Computed example of a mutant assay.
Amino acid sequence: MPYEVQGVVSRAKGEPVSLETVIVPDPGPGEAVVAIKACGVCHTDLHYREGGINDEFPFLLGHEAAGYVEQVGEGVTDVEPGDFVVLNWRAVCGTCRACKKGKPWYCFSTFNASQPMTLADGTPLSPALGIGAFMEKTLVHSGQCTKVDPSAEPAVVGLLGCGVMAGIGAAMNTGAVSRGDSVAVIGCGGVGDAAIAGAHLAGATTIIAVDMDDAKLEWAKEFGATATLNTRGKSHDEVVEAVQELTGSFGADVVIDAVGRPETWKQAFYARDLAGTVVLVGVPTPDMRLDDMPLIDFFARGGSLKSSWYGDCLPSRDFPMLVDLYQQGRLPLDKFVTERIAVDGVEQAFARMHKGDVLRSVVVFD
């Protein structure tokens, strides 16, 4: 029998979200209904509300979630009712050309639930990243459910579902940070701080946090930053020179751009060592362009220029490992949680996000 729950819906571009009745169908083949215990308020949800993803309104928001599998559909064997799971938005298919090459983190045919969730009047909803978890129950493809240690706190480990995994993976998977490396991270919000945590976990010895906000730079120290650089009022050259000074005059082995703007990407490009690596994990808008970059500089500096998709993660591999590291006290995932809120507080959480007052607000369900 379908479930009737209250969910956070974005009906039109730029308009405040509303709490509305949502109909969640029984799971069909390959699907699962998950009882959500907690869901982080991610900047991607705000992008949906602002029309920055697409215009398929109305959207059902929320995607950084953890909870318990409540019901599964026909043919589901990887999870069963009662399993504690973190939801992911890249359920790999196993059969596309990337999966067949042994690189499932690049899967080109990821799964979502086939059935729509709807408003009470039957209007189909577009769930954020195929999840839609600002409500007590949601419908997903079973491959979007990753089993983790059930003793972990949902409000903490659910953040692996998007931003925290994107940052940790940008350092550990995409950037391949290793012991003794020097790393600079530009942009110290949730994703940037997660990249710092990932670099620290991987054994980097110099980790430079780069931002325009002193409060964010202080936060970055809690995740492993060994040096901070406030770029407010500094020119491009001054930023590059400051990173070089902090790395023996050479530049960092890996520079991670967690902002995703042309100016920050250029800073990352020139602030790295020769043959160093640049990782772009901040998401640019479609109108952004790179200008005045001499092609000879790309050739002469060598190295790697990479984009990080979801931290190039494989949820079945990475989520349980990172939850275990958190449980062992080796990964401070709990420090990302700034506040716990009720489901009717999402719009206010967006406002605090705009002001830079929080790393993560997390909606918690009893």
Rank of each mutant, 00 (worst) to 15 (best):
V5E: 13
Q6A: 09
A12Q: 15
T21Y: 05
P25K: 09
P27A: 10
Y48M: 09
G67S: 13
Y68C: 10
E74V: 13
V85E: 06
C93D: 14
G94F: 03
C96E: 03
M117H: 06
T123K: 06
L129Q: 14
G130Y: 10
I131T: 07
F134K: 09
T138K: 05
P150L: 15
P154V: 15
G158P: 05
L159F: 08
L160N: 12
A170E: 08
N173A: 07
R179W: 09
A184P: 01
V185W: 02
A194T: 04
T205A: 07
D214S: 14
A220F: 02
A220W: 01
K221N: 06
L229Y: 02
V240G: 02
Q244H: 14
Q244K: 15
I256S: 06
D257M: 04
K266R: 15
Y270F: 14
Y270L: 11
R272G: 05
T277A: 12
T285P: 00
M288Y: 07
D292W: 02
A300L: 10
K306H: 12
S308V: 07
V323T: 13
L325F: 03
L325Y: 06
Q328A: 12
D334F: 00
K335V: 00
R340H: 12
G345K: 12
H354N: 07
L359D: 01
